[in-house]
Design a protein around this nucleic acid. Structure first.
Length: 429
RNA sequence: GGAAGCGUGCCGGAGCGGCCGAACGGAACAGUCUUGAAAACUGUCGUAGUUAAUAGCUACCGUGGGUUCAAAUCCCACCGCUUCCUCCA
């Protein structure tokens, strides 16, 4: 939710932001009108209520024989108060509904336009020149017997998979490397619930247009989270967070579930786009003034991880139209995927400024003792998808895959994954 | 799954339907005293909305409804917690 004061004082700024996103600009005028209506009806209610409160004291103090007459009078007033209360509540609801729809105000410098209008900030690392026929991660995963997609489909359907042997260990190694890096940077590790209540899912802004992306368990009225961001953002909801010692930073690990409802036929091969994967997510609660600096730090930590995995990548500044509704700015890091001869998103970091915190009612105490909404930021530090880039970029002519040095300590010193004849027959073979 | 109990401010903990935004204790903050500190004493000490206002008014005692002229206090539902039994990784 955006700041109501900003809406009142600078509606044009909000309008310009909506325009840049390709979102509905008229919502701004609707909100301004709803705010005025709300304040006026609230005033009416409060005046009547004050009258009723004063009258109540009169009734309480009155001698017994006068009470009946006074109560009779008060009944009329009570009816008016009830009506005014209902009207005020209604106007509040109208305002909330509109405010809930207005997206975060984009920051200066965010590229205008849609999905394809991103700006490339930099390209880092050498793309390898392969002097042999490269294979994609599916072929590599099969020959090394570390990814079993057929059996994944057999037991759970398409977009499910098994990680096996060194594949399973590689993912755990990746997560551990990321967690260690995050911990060293001052993040508190957090293993989060992946089933959350409707109000948490709504509060983090995931139940809007993309509601069909989310798994829902009707028997329990719970949602499966597509990212630990949901739990991490909800962690401090309705709290006043202590930021006097610096920002609160959490590294959340969880399995993530996505229905991929809108992406039929897209990335159907392999484990690039799946219903279930693991992710280590960084999340910061910080004073709003420091949000942009924190955003740069999150991005730097992501790049550090990519470099540890020895992956060539580029960083893009996402255009306004491609931002999530909570994000004021978003940077993606995309790794080079040789089999596709293109860059694919491995990380994403969003500065949500105070938007998410306002919805979830997360505040901190400023130096002057007043409370204010914090800023929240999030960013990926590792996901299962990284295996795609690692396997493909580090494949060798002999069919093996060289393990990035930073990961080796987490794999018992193992330097490469060698193809070996599988003892388990292929499914259906 | 069965049974009982409980949800009040930063914490603990009172609260006959009107005098309760809420006793009392602790913590915290400011001051007095002190060379300084502790102790003692004095004071301050919830959040938000509205408003030009740190004036006033309004709302908030788990959440949402209801009863009443009036609800922290009565009724209902939900959520959560605790204990016991049952079950279980």
């Amino acid at each position: 939710m955006i700041d109501l004061t900003l809406l009142r004082e600078n509606p044009d700024v909000v309008k310009a932001s909506q325009r840049a996103r390709g979102a509905d600009e008229s919502l701004v005028d609707q909100a301004v009108a709803a705010d005025e209506a709300r304040r006026s009806s609230l005033q009416q209610f409060e005046v009547l209520r004050a009258e009723q409160n004063a009258f109540g004291k009169l009734v309480a103090a009155a001698p017994k024989d006068e009470k009946a007459a006074l109560v009779a009078q008060a009944q009329d007033l009570a009816a008016k108060v009830k009506a005014a209360d209902a009207a005020a509540a209604e106007s509040q609801l109208v305002l909330d509904t509109v405010m809930w729809k207005i997206e975060n105000v984009v920051l200066d410098g965010v590229p205008v336009g849609g999905e394809d209008d991103f700006v490339v900030l930099r390209e880092v690392g050498e793309k390898r020149a392969f002097d042999f026929e490269i294979r994609d991660h599916v072929a590599i995963g099969e020959s090394l017997d570390i990814i079993d997609i057929e059996r994944g489909a057999k037991i759970s359907g398409s977009r499910f998979y098994f990680l096996k042997g060194w594949g399973a260990r590689l993912e755990l190694a990746l997560m551990s490397l990321a967690l260690d890096q995050a911990a060293a940077a001052g993040f508190t590790a957090l293993i989060t619930p992946t089933l959350v209540r409707p109000e948490v899912m709504a509060g983090t802004g995931f139940l809007g247009e993309h509601a069909d992306e989310i798994y829902y368990l009707p028997a329990d009225d719970l949602y499966l989270t597509g990212t630990s961001e949901v739990a991490l953002a909800g962690y401090h909801s309705n709290e006043i967070v202590d930021l006097s010692e610096g920002p609160a930073r959490y590294a959340g690990w969880s399995t993530c579930y996505r229905r991929e409802a809108g992406s039929h036929g897209k990335d159907t091969r392999g484990i690039l786009r799946v219903h279930q994967f693991n992710k280590l997510e960084m999340f910061s609660y910080i004073e709003p003034e420091q949000a942009e600096a924190e955003h740069a730090k999150l991005l730097a930590w992501q790049e550090e991880m990519l470099q540890k995995c020895e992956l060539p990548y580029r960083v893009i500044d996402t255009a306004a139209g491609d931002l999530g509704s909570s994000a004021a700015r978003k940077f993606d890091a995309e790794a080079w995927v040789p089999s596709q001869a293109s860059y694919r998103e491995l990380t994403s970091t969003s500065n949500c400024t105070t938007y998410q915190a306002r919805r979830l009612n997360v505040r901190y105490r400023r130096e002057d003792g007043k409370t204010a909404n914090v800023a929240t930021l999030n960013g990926t530090l590792a996901t299962t998808r990284w295996l795609v880039a690692i396997l493909e970029n580090h494949q060798q002519i002999d069919g093996s895959v060289l393990i990035p040095k930073a990961l080796r300590p987490y794999l018992g010193g193992q330097e490469r994954i060698e193809p070996k004849p599988s003892k388990t027959p292929k499914a259906g073979a």
